[in-house]
Design a protein around this nucleic acid. Structure first.
Length: 268
DNA sequence: GTCCATGTTCTTTA
DNA sequence: CTAAAGAACATGGA
């Protein structure tokens, strides 16, 4: 569920209950989601004080007083919430950290595509610019030298960080760009329009609490509502909300892709 | 039983 | 080197 807006909302809802908290106990229910090579969560995290919580791409990054960092990735079905200790523990709960406030940070992930990753003092991550603050020229620099379709390029975290299948489709629709357009064929004007569209879509989605298609909830366990406002994603055959033309669907780069043939032309 | 799914990474193929 | 295509990971819902 989690693309940039969902991860941002998780961070925003967790931060007030996590900053300044110390980890008093760890219950690691499985170790195969702990990377690299099942590092010892207890020795790293017991007694640690969380001084900052931020989002980078789709990662939830914890900064400790020791200046070490680690991140949690939600994969496809991850949930990271803070609950009272008395709350029932959901199936597929893989990690529980009890805080000095008495509350518990819990990581649930049925499909187990997510995980906990130790960073230590490592800072380089090889990913592209953060879309909410990027300039069009920064995006252009990463698009002009690839012939891949713009849809595929937007999903590449080295091109731009944090966009996934939903927001790639939604952003291209707002920008009026056909998803199969080769990235290097986009005009500067189109890239400028795409940059604006990405920011607009992501900001709206964050304000709506993210998109809940199935599993996604924020740090308080609440669902998002942006799925109700999707213009093209998962709307194949339904009328375009802008012009009424039925939405197209095709598999591009192995991912389902949705667009309006009338609003999104192949011509620059 | 089948197909599909908000993500990432690796392998194969061209 | 580029990149497309496919598979893999694991689970559950339609």
């Amino acid at each position: 569920m989690p693309e940039l807006p969902e991860v941002q909302v998780v961070v925003d809802t967790l931060r007030p209950r996590l900053l300044g908290r110390q980890i008093e106990a760890i219950h690691a229910l499985r170790t195969d989601m702990v990377m690299p090579a099942a590092f010892d969560l207890r020795s790293r995290l017991l007694g640690a004080l969380v001084i900052e919580l931020r989002r980078r791409a789709k990662r939830i990054v914890f900064e400790l007083q020791s200046r070490d960092r680690f991140y949690i990735h939600l994969g496809m079905t991850g949930q990271l919430t803070i609950d009272a200790p008395g709350q029932p523990v959901k199936p597929h709960t893989h990690f529980i950290a009890t805080l000095d406030s008495g509350e518990q940070l819990r990581f649930v992930d049925p499909r187990r595509f997510g995980g906990i990753f130790w960073l230590g003092s490592e800072t380089a991550d090889g990913m592209g610019p953060e879309p909410l603050s990027m300039r069009a020229v920064a995006l252009a620099a990463n698009l002009t030298r690839t012939r891949r379709s713009i849809k595929t390029a937007l999903l590449d975290q080295r091109v731009v960080a944090g966009i996934g299948n939903i927001y790639a489709d939604e952003s291209l629709h707002v920008a009026g760009i056909h998803p199969l357009t080769p990235a290097c064929d986009l005009s500067p004007r189109q890239i400028a329009s795409l940059t604006t569209a990405i920011k607009k879509v992501l900001r709206r989605a964050i304000r709506a609490g993210g998109s809940t298609l199935r599993d996604y909830v924020n740090g308080r366990g609440e669902r998002g509502s942006f799925q109700l406002r999707h213009k093209v994603y998962d709307r194949a055959g339904l009328p375009c909300r802008t012009c009424g033309t039925p939405i197209e669907r095709a598999v591009v780069g192995g991912r389902s892709t949705h667009w309006c043939a009338r609003c999104q032309s192949m011509q620059p």
